[in-house]
Design a protein around this nucleic acid. Structure first.
Lengths: 124, 124
DNA sequence: ATAACATCTGGAGTTCACTCTAAGTCAAGA
DNA sequence: TCTTGACTTAGAGTGAACTCCAGATGTTAT
C-alpha cells in the first residue's frame, strides 16, 4: 500500500504518517526498491493502532514508548502492560470529566430551550 | 477572594486565571481599591464553569464566544443554545472515541496479563 | 521604616502535534 | 525526451494553551 492509500484509509495526512514514523509512533515502514514507503499489513496495523489511540487523546510520547518497548522483545512485557494501565487510568479520568460536562451541558441546554419560549433566561 | 485563593480552589494557576480573563474566557473580574483582583461569587462561578468545560477539552475560543454572547443579553439566547449544542456534539464524539479505546486497552491489557504468566505474547 | 512577600502588566518563551515548504528523485504517459 | 504527478528528505512555520519573566506596585510583619 502506498502512503496515499494509507492516508485515505485511516484519515491521517501523509505528512502526519511520515512524522509518526520519524518520531517512532509507528515502527519504520517497509520500502520498495526505489525507497518509497510500501505499507505492509503489519505497518497498517500500527497506523490503525496509532489512529485509535490518538483519537482518544493519548500523547505521542506514550505511543512512541510503547512502540520502542515492543521492538525490544518479550522482556519488556511488564513495562508495556504498566504503560497501558497508566494510559487506561488517564482515559477513565477523561471519560468522567466528559460525562460530567455533558450532563452540565444538557442541563444548560434544557434551560435555554425553556428560555427560547419566554425570551429570557433565569439565573444563568 | 484573592487570585491565590481562586487558584487553589479550582486548581488553575494564577497565570492561567489572568490569561483567561485577558482573552475573555471569563468576564472581567472585580477589583479592590488598589486594583488587585477580588473575585466575587459570580466571578468564581465563571471560573468554575471554565474549569469544568476545559477539563472536558472544550476549546478556549468556544468559551470566549459563550461569554461574549452572555454579556450581550437575552437576544443572544438562540446563539448560545446553538453553541452549547455544537460543543455537546463534539463531546459525544470524543466520549465514543474514548470508550472504544478503553475497550481496546482492556483487551490488550488482558493479553498482557496472560503474557505475564507465560513470558511471551502471542499475535500482538 | 524596612524587609519579605503578593499581585500587577506586557510581552516573550514553551510544549504539543501537526503542517507546510523547498529542493530533489522516480515512474508513467504524450 | 519531456512533462506531469507522486513521493522523498530536512527543516521551518503554525495554532492552541499555557507558562514564565521583568519590572513595577501593593500589603503585611517586625
Amino acid at each position: 500500500m502506498t502512503i496515499s492509500d494509507v492516508s485515505k484509509k485511516y484519515g491521517i495526512s501523509q505528512d502526519t504518517l511520515r512524522y509518526y514514523e520519524k518520531i517512532g509512533v509507528i515502527p519504520p515502514v517497509n520500502r520498495n526498491e526505489s525507497g518509497l514507503r510500501d505499507y505492509t499489513e503489519e505497518d497498517c496495523g500500527w497506523v490503525e493502532l496509532a489512529a485509535c489511540m490518538r483519537s482518544a487523546g493519548l500523547p505521542l510520547d506514550a505511543l512512541t514508548e510503547y512502540v520502542r518497548l515492543s521492538r525490544e522483545g518479550d522482556t519488556t512485557i511488564p513495562e508495556r502492560r504498566q504503560l497501558l494501565l497508566e494510559q487506561k487510568e488517564r482515559l477513565m479520568i477523561q471519560l468522567k470529566a466528559i460525562q460530567e460536562t455533558l450532563e452540565r451541558l444538557d442541563y444548560k441546554i434544557s434551560r435555554y430551550d425553556k428560555a427560547m419560549e419566554t425570551g429570557r433566561l433565569v439565573w444563568d
